[in-house]
Amino acid sequence: MTVQPSRLLIYAILIIFAAFYLMPVYVLLVTGMKGFVEVSLPRMWDLPSGLYFDSFLRAWFGSQAQGFRGLSTNFLNSVKLVVPATLISAMLGSMNGYVLAKWKFRGSEVLFPLLLFGMFIPYQSVLIPLVQTLQKMQLYGSIPGLIFVHVVYGIPITTLIFRNYYATVPTELVEASKIDGASLLGIYRWVMFPISMPGFVVALIWQFTSIWNDFLFGVVVTPNPAVQPVTVTLNNLAGSYIVEWNVQMAGALLAALPTLLVYIFLGRYFMRGLLAGSLKG
């Protein structure tokens, strides 16, 4: 078997691009593993001489002496934020999607794009009233407040994911149950919900990723460093001139870990979420 030169070229291009995408990961990893004596910017691309986890420890625990905050508590804050927010918004999205796909009412075809628009708005256009309203609701500056915000602004995308998913379920299934005398909730419970797992996986992964990765709401809704999610702490770590760059890199890797793991293990569903996000039902 001979290899055609054109095939070789294709592989060469693919590999060059793979190197481009992996380049930052390489720097993240080697920098994170270097000991403090070996980290210097001019040796950025060199391999570490051994395995050290100093940078990770520093990024995780921070340094009292240097006066910067580690990621540990804020990582936990992100977990406390992302788990309930993801679950609640998936549940909401499922109900909304069900109604919009199978129980269309007068105005539902207007309501749907109106909901969807909320997904695209620049959140800057709601920040000022958001802070004031959350304050009146006694939710400002707290993780429950942040959960609430993510649930509300997650409604459009989760609704979209489920509506598109339920649209693929044959309407005859619903009609048949209706004839059998099942109610709207009954049909949801007995017919739709049991087959909703794929929709849930997509919605949960999508919400998990975008809430974990959020920065704007975190920085505005939770100004207190002890309550902030991990992305905000990482940004502060990087914005501070006293923190060495290898600690910043290690911090970036730590903050990226949960979504990376989700991507590695559930990549297939992640893809589906992405494509759902592109409005292709």
């Binding site: 006066g67 910067f68 000022i128 802070v131 004031q132 959350l134 304050q135 400002y140 500056g141 920085v219 505005v220 100004p223 207190n224 502060n236 914005g239 501070s240 006293i242």
Partner: peptide, 20 residues
Amino acid sequence: AGGAGAQAKAVLTTRMLGGD
């Protein structure tokens, strides 16, 4: 940290605006 208080001022504003 950061920017001769530039970061801190943003945090302070949101905290005051948010009543905290």
